[in-house]
Simulated assay, not measured.
Amino acid sequence: MRTSLLLGSATAALLTFPLACAKTSPSPGPAVGAGGAVVPPAGRQVAVATAAQLQAALGAARPGDVITLADGTYTGQFSIARGLSGTAGNSIVLQGSRQALLQTGNRKSGNAALFLLGNEHWEFRGFTVANSKKGVMVDFSSHNVFAELSILDIGEEGIHFRRFSSYNVLRNSTIQGTGLEQPGYGEGCYIGSAKSNWATYTEGEPDKCDFNQVLDNVFGNNVKAENIDIKEGTTGGIIRGNAFNGQGLDGANYADSWLDVKGNNNLISANTGTNGGPVLLDGYQTHVAVAGWGEGNVFRDNQCAVQAAGYGFNIQTKNGSALGNQVHASNRVTGAAAGVANVPVTP
């Protein structure tokens, strides 16, 4: 659990390159369907092989485009123009193999290798993000999908949903080697902002990064802070089917569990936690960082090989109440010296 983070500017300068740098298949004109209705043309296939071509393609993308990365290393802070979005029926896709690597080339300074700012209905598939201060930063952006990515060798957090970013999905990805320069800021996946940062990022309002889903990912080794940290101000997330790993936890900023929940009404289910490591205390924790938060979270069907001195589930209580948090009997806990949970288990 960290209570404060000091980040650089939330915006990255948008590099401008001629669109001709990217190889773009021409899009046909509108087709006419039954009854004379105009059928929107299919998106363009855009092949890129250099950093300049990639930034040009990101800056000129339109709904339905599929931007494909050739294998190779792309060095820069790759940003999407503010507000440039796909649609619910026509996402914009950026895809590549694990051998297509986005990086800033600097784990100590700068910002994220991939930066969203007010973008919706994008899909990011298959490629690697590495060797950067932050991996992926998502600000003011919703309804995006991050799938089959590899995020590793990162100075601070791997992927951060921040500034009212909601309804995003992170799935089937691998996150390891985060916090290599700042262990206390080295979460694998960070959702929301601490109250101490609301004045900076949200004009003092709770950072409502709501209804994000983290599904079927593999975390660790060497995620230095929590595998996932869900901050106060967030609501309704789903954390399901992930493999958590405590080997490499550093302990800075109280990071001593696989997952720390300070938001409300999150469902944490069907996850597997292993490799406690020397720093792990509890498998899962909730905290009341701000009054009215850290409530109503549900834990069920999780497999927890804790191998540590604490609990499988350590629920912060207030005046003897678990604040609506539920630890179900369907969870399986081994190796937790203090027991399954510090609160009564829900049948």
Results as ranks from 00 to 15, higher is better:
75 T>E: 10
142 S>G: 01
81 A>D: 11
91 S>W: 10
122 W>D: 05
100 A>L: 02
82 R>Q: 15
109 S>C: 06
88 A>H: 01
94 L>C: 14
105 G>E: 05
118 G>H: 02
117 L>V: 11
92 I>H: 05
110 G>K: 07
111 N>R: 14
120 E>G: 09
86 G>P: 01
85 S>N: 03
119 N>Q: 07
117 L>A: 11
81 A>F: 00
73 T>L: 08
87 T>L: 01
93 V>A: 04
75 T>R: 14
141 S>M: 02
73 T>P: 00
111 N>D: 15
111 N>C: 10
131 N>P: 07
97 S>D: 02
79 S>Q: 12
116 L>V: 03
140 F>V: 02
76 G>W: 09
78 F>K: 04
125 R>T: 11
125 R>I: 12
127 F>C: 05
113 A>T: 11
87 T>R: 00
114 L>E: 07
73 T>A: 08
102 L>Y: 08
98 R>W: 06
121 H>G: 00
109 S>L: 12
120 E>S: 14
123 E>L: 12
82 R>F: 06
117 L>S: 12
99 Q>S: 11
96 G>R: 01
76 G>K: 02
118 G>Y: 02
106 N>L: 00
123 E>D: 05
77 Q>F: 01
141 S>H: 04
81 A>N: 06
129 V>D: 06
79 S>N: 10
132 S>K: 06
78 F>Q: 07
116 L>W: 10
81 A>Q: 07
73 T>M: 06
90 N>M: 03
120 E>I: 01
102 L>H: 11
136 V>I: 15
85 S>L: 06
112 A>I: 12
113 A>V: 11
137 M>H: 14
110 G>E: 06
132 S>I: 09
131 N>G: 11
142 S>L: 00
136 V>R: 13
80 I>Q: 10
107 R>N: 11
80 I>F: 14
94 L>T: 05
106 N>Y: 07
142 S>C: 05
74 Y>V: 06
121 H>Q: 04
116 L>N: 09
76 G>T: 08
94 L>D: 03
131 N>L: 08
130 A>T: 14
124 F>S: 14
140 F>L: 10
74 Y>L: 08
81 A>L: 12
80 I>Y: 02
122 W>C: 02
132 S>P: 08
133 K>D: 10
110 G>R: 07
109 S>I: 13
124 F>T: 05
103 Q>D: 07
110 G>D: 05
108 K>Q: 13
120 E>A: 02
123 E>F: 03
